[in-house]
Simulated assay, not measured.
Amino acid sequence: MAWFSFTGTDPSQSSHYTLVASQPTCPGLTQRMCALQAMNDGSNNPVITDALKDEIINSLQNQVNGTNVKLKAR
């Protein structure tokens, strides 16, 4: 599994992430998407499964980090 920083506008689109070397820190606006951990699709994009989409939605709606989803800190 690899870490990907959120660099776009749509958390459910793999092209809106950038592969990073390690889990990123997340300064800035609070409780916004920061990063996720997923399998690399071979083109340095995350594989966003239905389960991972559900985790993204849950994290954003409840403003909590998930196992594979990291939000910007409060």
Rank of each mutant, 00 (worst) to 15 (best):
P46Q: 04
T7W: 04
N68T: 07
Q63C: 07
Q37Y: 08
Q23S: 13
Q13C: 13
Q63N: 08
S12R: 15
A38N: 02
V69C: 02
L36F: 02
N45M: 07
D41T: 03
K70D: 11
L60Y: 04
L19R: 12
L29G: 11
Q61K: 09
A35D: 06
M1G: 11
S12T: 14
I56K: 04
N44F: 01
S59C: 10
D41N: 08
T25A: 09
W3Q: 02
I56T: 05
S43N: 15
V69Y: 01
P11F: 04
Y17L: 00
S12V: 14
C26D: 00
T30R: 12
T30Y: 13
D54R: 15
V47D: 07
G66M: 09
H16I: 08
N68D: 11
T67Q: 14
N44G: 10
Q23W: 10
T9D: 10
P27C: 11
Y17V: 00
A35Y: 04
A21W: 07
M33F: 02
I48E: 06
M1S: 10
L19I: 12
Q61A: 12
T30C: 09
K70G: 05
N44W: 03
T30N: 05
V69E: 03
V69K: 01
N68L: 06
N40K: 00
S12Q: 11
C26S: 01
G42D: 03
A2Q: 08
N62V: 04
V69P: 02
A51E: 03
Q63D: 07
R32F: 15
F4A: 01
T18S: 12
Q23T: 09
A21D: 12
F4S: 02
W3F: 02
A2F: 09
R32H: 14
F4I: 01
A35E: 05
T25F: 10
L71W: 02
S59K: 00
Q13N: 12
A21K: 13
F6R: 01
A73N: 15
F4L: 00
P24G: 03
I48K: 04
F6L: 01
M33P: 06
L29S: 15
T30Q: 12
S22D: 14
V47H: 14
T25I: 10
L36I: 06
A38D: 00
K72N: 08
P11H: 05
L36A: 06
N62A: 03
R32C: 15
Y17R: 00
T49W: 03
T7D: 05
S12D: 09
S12G: 09
N45P: 07
N40M: 01
G8Y: 06
R74A: 08
S5Y: 15
S43Y: 11
L29M: 13
G42L: 02
S22R: 10
T49V: 05
A35W: 02
G42W: 02
K70L: 13
D54N: 15
S43G: 12
F4C: 01
